[in-house]
Amino acid sequence: MESSTYPDKKYIESSRMWVNVAAHSEKTHQVDAIVGGKQVTVCSAYWNIPCEAHSKCYSAANQFENIKGLPTTVYTDADGKEIGRAVGGKSASELVKMQKDLLEKIPGDKISIDEWNQAKKMIEDAESCFAKMEWKKSVEGYTRLSKQPKKLWKDKASEGLAKLNEKGRELIADAKGKAETEKEEAKKILKLVASDFKPLDCSKEAAAALKEIPADEKK
C-alpha cells in the first residue's frame, strides 16, 4: 500500500479530508531527499515524515481491539472513536470509496488539510508581524483571515484583532503618560496607533487622544 495506494493521486486528494496516521514500527525506510527546495531526512514509504514519526505512532494501534492481520486500516471520528475498519491490502479506489462513505458519518463543517495549512500560515505570519511590532501588517493579516468563510478562522481572526486592539490601547496609555513631559514622543505614538491600527477601535481612540494634546504655543 505504501508504494501503490498512498502515492495514488486520487487517494492523496481523498486523504485531504482526514488526519492520517501511519503506525509502522520499523525505521528502515529513511532517506535524504529534497522536498520544497530543502534537503530533509524523510521516510521513503510515508511522505514527508521521518521514520521516527511513524514508529512512534505504532503504539496508537494498541487502543483498538483485535488488530491482528496487517495491514489494517482503522477510521475514527474526530474524537478518535472507531467508525470503520479494513483488513488486508486495499487499492486506492477501495479506500477512496470507503473514506467517502465514512466521511458522511461525521456531521458538521469540515476543514481540508489544504485550507488548514493555508489558514495556519496566515495566523503564523500575522503573529510574526505582531512579534516584530509590524502592527499594520499584523492587522492586515488577521483581517484577511477574518474573510475566510469558516467560523473557526473568523474566531481566530477576532482573537488576533482583539489582541492588537489591546496592544494599541497600551500604546495610547503610554502616550498619555508622556503627554506632559515628552509631548512630541506622545504625538508620534498616537499618530502611529491612529494610522497602523486602522480600522480597530484603538485607532479612533488614538486619533481622539491626539486632538486632546494642545498644540505648541507660537513664539
Partner: peptide, 24 residues
C-alpha cells in the same frame, strides 16, 4: 498524503478540523 507526527497531534487536529482519523 500528509502524515501526522504523533497520535496526540492527530487527535487535536481532527477535533479542530472536525474530520476523522485514518490510522494505517
Amino acid at each position: 498524503v500528509y502524515w501526522a507526527a504523533s497520535w496526540e497531534d492527530a487527535l487535536k487536529e481532527a477535533k479542530e478540523r472536525n474530520v476523522g482519523i485514518h490510522l494505517a
